[in-house]
């Protein structure tokens, strides 16, 4: 079980969190004209990198805040976590 540092609450065990996927995906702006291909890329397609991955976590059994984590998908090492409006300290 991973230990994840919520930027609001501090270190907690993984079972308090839920995973939210790639944090670098940007939702298209509402009302914007968008090709089917671009829309499908947003809805369905994600990279599956081995190594460093910037991802979202939700402290669902805690403060209920979404935040970002930089994690190695191969080793599970978490390099840093930060609030949505912050950048990693790396």
């Amino acid at each position: 079980m991973l230990e994840i540092k919520c930027p609001y609450c501090g270190k907690r065990s993984q079972n308090e969190f839920s995973y939210g996927g790639d944090a670098t995906v940007k939702r298209p702006t509402l009302g914007e004209e968008i090709s089917t291909e671009d829309w499908d890329n947003f809805v369905y397609f994600r990279d599956n990198p081995r190594g460093k991955h910037t991802e979202l976590w939700h402290h669902v059994s805690g403060c209920r805040q979404w935040f970002k984590a930089s994690r190695d998908t191969a080793t599970h090492e978490i390099f840093d976590t930060c609030k949505m409006n912050e950048a990693f300290n790396e």
């Binding site: 939210g20 939702r27 939700h58 669902v60 209920r64 805040q65 979404w66 949505m84 409006n85």
Partner: peptide, 14 residues
């Protein structure tokens, strides 16, 4: 639904 709403408020449309 609550997680969904929180996601859009915190991540997509802060």
């Amino acid at each position: 639904v609550l997680s969904h709403l929180e996601y859009y408020l915190q991540v997509v449309w802060p």
